[in-house]
């Protein structure tokens, strides 16, 4: 039954609009600014050209995640993918824009609704060493939240925790241990068990397999896919690893310097990438099938988000850039059903 539901969800993703969105972002931005210190303020008073430094970590992003789908969010370091993930998970407020949870605006939810929304969205972090409290036993790490939120009672607590651990592939016999007594892969399983213990419908995975060895990474990826089938979960899977994203995702969103540059179903984006950045990224991903290839490399560095280039953020490195790219920010526009891209070249054609 779970298998058919995944098939159905995959089909509905292909159809486009069928499933209801769990979360919807409209023009969401996140800015971090560093206020001037005392000396800076004096310098400013005296007419020195100093200002507050502002990083546009996320800059006007629209994103929809529908029930049952796996959305892969890809980008290089500093592109704002983790910040976006944190805003989606409700850990961080947005500076601008609106986030809708099941069609309701997130910041207008009443207390009980807001708590439910938070509980239904859980996050799995990159570093399984830093994201677990080293002074708590595994049973408490996994079992604290469900007890607090009334998902289980004291009497049933032990069995509940055992169940959660078993589901994440951990032996419940280890529940009295501390995180440092586990290997990296097992710790990541603890993080997964903790996230699933409050019975969420939506999971944000922030580079959840990046720190693991290849063989362990495969185990965790398989676990993610099994859990998705079993519990009908929805994932936002954040990663810099295109191979992992391609393997897991129904839909892929590519970010560059705080903006979404392309968004399409996974097959579509890997077969017909439209944005020059996506094309470059795909061309340069080392693949096990490619032998003795000659690496070319797009020129230049990723610019600092403190001082991003004008117009299209990618234009200084883009092989097809023309005058308009420097001046005008390209809009994310649909170029094929379900396939959006933010590039001026699409208008010219």
């Amino acid at each position: 039954m779970s298998a058919t539901s995944t098939v159905r969800s995959a089909a509905s993703v292909a159809a486009g609009e069928a499933a209801a969105p769990i979360i919807e972002l409209k023009g969401v931005s996140k800015r971090f600014s560093k206020k001037l210190d005392f000396a800076g303020k004096i310098a400013q008073k005296l007419g020195a050209p100093v200002k507050d430094e502002t990083v546009h970590a996320v800059d006007g992003v629209d994103l929809v995640v529908r029930k049952g789908e796996v959305v892969g969010l890809v980008g290089e370091s500093g592109c704002g993918k983790s910040t976006l993930g944190r805003m989606v998970a409700g850990i961080m407020p947005a500076s601008a824009g609106e986030i809708f949870w099941h069609g309701k605006k997130l910041d207008t939810l009443t207390g009980a609704e807001a708590r439910n929304a938070k509980l239904q969205t859980q996050m799995i972090f990159q570093d399984p060493y830093a994201s677990l409290n080293p002074r708590m036993r595994v049973a408490d790490i996994v079992g604290e939240a469900p007890l607090v939120h009334g998902l289980t009672r004291r009497g049933e607590w032990d069995a509940y925790v055992d169940n959660q651990m078993r589901r994440a592939g951990l032996d419940p016999a280890f529940k009295r241990r501390y995180p440092h007594q586990f290997s990296g892969g097992q710790r990541q399983r603890i993080g997964i068990a903790r996230a699933l213990a409050v019975q969420p419908e939506f999971i944000v995975c922030d580079e959840a397999v990046a720190a693991l060895d290849v063989s362990i990474q495969a185990q965790i990826l398989n676990l993610f896919m099994e859990l998705r089938q079993e519990l009908n979960l929805t994932y936002l899977f954040i990663s810099h690893d295109l191979g992992v994203v391609e393997h897991l995702s129904d839909r892929v969103v590519i970010m560059y310097l705080g903006r979404v540059v392309e968004e399409a179903p996974a097959e579509e984006i890997f077969a017909r990438a439209n944005h020059p950045y996506t094309q470059a990224l795909l061309a340069e991903v080392p693949r096990i099938e490619a032998r003795k290839k000659s690496f070319a490399g797009i020129k230049g560095e990723i610019p600092s988000p403190l001082n991003p280039p004008s117009g299209c953020h990618f234009h200084p490195r883009c092989p097809h850039a023309f005058a308009r790219c420097k001046l005008e920010r390209p809009a994310l526009r649909e170029i094929a059903p379900g396939h959006k891209s933010a590039c001026h070249l699409n208008d010219a054609a």
Binding site: Q217, A218, Q219, L221, H247
Partner: peptide, 18 residues
């Protein structure tokens, strides 16, 4: 164990244990 193009969505052939 390496996710690759022709294995999309399939279960990866994992190595058991560590």
């Amino acid at each position: 164990s390496v996710p690759s193009r022709n294995k999309r969505g399939e279960k990866l052939r994992q190595i058991p244990g560590m």
